[in-house]
């Protein structure tokens, strides 16, 4: 029974939602609304499921005086200070986010926001460092990725188009150089011919491409995003969506049960 009842609950709730999609009339529409309302109430509690282990783990560290315990103590203290502050603020102003709530205007604005946003700002440094070390045009595909990324980066910013000529110039030179060294080391003249032709093509399209990028920057950006890259995104997401549907049905029909462990 410990497994059967949850599986029945999953089946009934999942099927109710799917049936309501195809038959939105009563009683299914009403059942859907009620189930949704229950889901709204219950799913909130999933937000705090990790709370127990977070506090338990850190309390344990403080008790054992394990390495780094002062940080665990800081964590626990800040949990309780924040909680008490929030409760006091709620009692005094009626709601935690009332416009006069000190919790919102001081804790949220000057503690929570800077901490969270700076955590994510660190990523800018790491991505810059990675750009320097890791992004190499090792293959044709990697080159496509880097060139698209660079064009997008430069068309997304004002005046970015002004450096387009030298940037693409260096990229073209590097490509031609690499292709020519392939041409040089090719077994026969005919085997190397494609490399030579590709090099000539790159030189030939360089100026027109730079000119278009320079004069119609926003249109090019719009075209890359809405046309050139869009098909692949659609393909990828269709794959993910079909996988998601299959997974959802497996859960509803009780084939996938890992959530019960």
């Amino acid at each position: 029974m410990k497994r059967e009842i949850p599986m029945i609950i999953t089946f009934v709730s999942g099927m109710a939602i799917i049936i309501a999609l195809f038959v939105p009339h009563p009683p299914f529409g009403r059942v859907e609304e009620t189930f949704n309302n229950w889901y709204i109430i219950i799913s909130g509690f999933t937000m705090i499921l990790g709370l127990n282990s977070l506090l338990g783990h850190n309390l344990d560290k403080v008790k054992r005086k394990a390495e780094g315990w002062p940080y665990s103590l800081t964590l626990i203290l800040s949990f309780f200070i924040t909680l008490i502050w929030g409760i006091v603020s709620t009692i005094r102003t009626g709601h935690i986010f009332a416009s006069t709530s000190t919790f919102r205007n001081y804790y949220y604005t000057y503690v929570f926001v800077p901490l969270q946003s700076t955590m994510f700002a660190l990523l800018a440094f790491f991505i810059a460092s990675a750009a320097y070390r890791a992004f190499r045009a090792r293959t044709v595909n990697a080159t496509l990725l880097l060139v698209t990324a660079s064009i997008i980066m430069l068309t997304q910013v004002p005046k970015g188009e002004t450096v387009m000529a030298p940037v693409l110039g260096v990229a073209a030179l590097l490509a031609v150089w690499k292709l020519m060294s392939e041409f040089e080391s090719a077994a026969s003249w005919t085997a190397g011919l494609p490399y030579l032709l590709l090099s000539i093509a790159i030189v030939a399209v360089y100026l027109p491409i730079v000119e278009v990028l320079r004069t119609q920057t926003t249109a090019v950006n719009d075209w890359i995003m809405n046309v050139l890259q869009m098909g692949a995104k659609r393909g990828i997401w269709l794959g993910i969506a079909l996988g998601g549907i299959a997974m959802g049905l497996r859960i509803i029909f009780g084939i996938e049960k890992s959530y019960l462990t």
Binding site: G44, F45, M47, I48, G50, L51, L54, L55, Y71, S72, T74, L75, I76, L77, S78, F79, F80, I81, T82, L83, G86, I87, T90, H95, I96, F97, F103, Y107, Y108, V111, F112, L115, Q116, M119
Partner: peptide, 17 residues
């Protein structure tokens, strides 16, 4: 530590409100 601890409390307050 302040970030992790206080955001846990924040979530709890949010759930209540």
């Amino acid at each position: 530590s302040v970030y992790v601890g206080s955001s846990a409390a924040y979530m709890l307050l949010f759930l209540w409100s």
